[in-house]
Design a protein around this nucleic acid. Structure first.
Lengths: 131, 131
DNA sequence: ATGATTGCAAATACTTTGCACACCC
DNA sequence: GGGTGTGCAAAGTATTTGCAATCAT
């Protein structure tokens, strides 16, 4: 545990609704630690992921996002502003066909919903607005 | 509609259980059309996605996968061999908390299950095997 | 001729790696 | 002093873009 790692972890906790990308964490940490290297950010993120303290999310282009909420939950991704929200859902409601479940040992699941948040809809950026 | 596009679309249909990446489609199409350019593959894939004839899947590192099955379905990704299988599931079973659904206009959903397929488990590559 | 599409190569975005230096025990 | 972690820069992977050449109408 080094000062760099502490700073990165702290940035993640402060930003806990933001699901930041590696780049965003890097920018934020650089404020108080200008010598921080991007490689260190990636190193630390990977270690945290290996320790199951952090979730790595592939939400599409723009880089991978990281989430300190390691509980089983889904994500809403706004196609207007890119914001990501956590959503609780009942995991037991996601049921797969039995023939697949028997053949396949599931380790982790991930549910992503894409759409438009209320802010973007009210700004006309929604599905009916200009794309 | 050009010969290149026809070849790409045909490759997708032939490969319809493989969920190929752009690179894989490129390799396959090159067999019969050595002058095919990777840029053309990307162009065509994007057009097909825009026309809703193709699904673009972000399944993690290794590039984006494409799926000719545009029905609402989930994906099983094998962490041993990388193989991707379609799974039917009942979309109505995926229920989100009401407060989020009200605020958020969902356009598309995506469910990904990661784990190990029966082949990999029997080869000791499963969750209990060597990582 | 006109406009769209292609192939090539360079550019971009994101992530990983190699290596020398600094740090802690 | 030995192993670990860091910063820098270069390499790597995946995708996009610019542009001249080509094709269909």
């Amino acid at each position: 545990v080094t000062p760099q790692r502490r700073a990165i972890f702290q940035a993640l906790l402060e930003d806990d609704s933001a699901h930041p990308t590696a780049e965003e964490i890097f920018d934020q940490v650089q404020d108080g630690m200008p010598d921080m290297s991007l490689a260190t950010v990636y190193n630390t993120l990977h270690e945290l992921v290996d320790m199951d303290l952090l979730l790595e999310l592939d939400l599409g282009p723009g880089g991978r996002h990281y989430d300190v909420n390691t509980a089983d939950h889904a994500h809403l991704v706004c196609m207007g502003c890119g914001r990501v929200e956590d959503v609780d859902y009942d995991p037991s409601t996601v049921v797969l066909s039995p023939e697949h479940v028997q053949d396949f040992q599931i380790v982790e699941r991930m549910a992503i919903f894409r759409g438009y948040c209320s802010v973007c809809i009210s700004q006309g950026k929604g599905p009916n607005g200009v794309s």
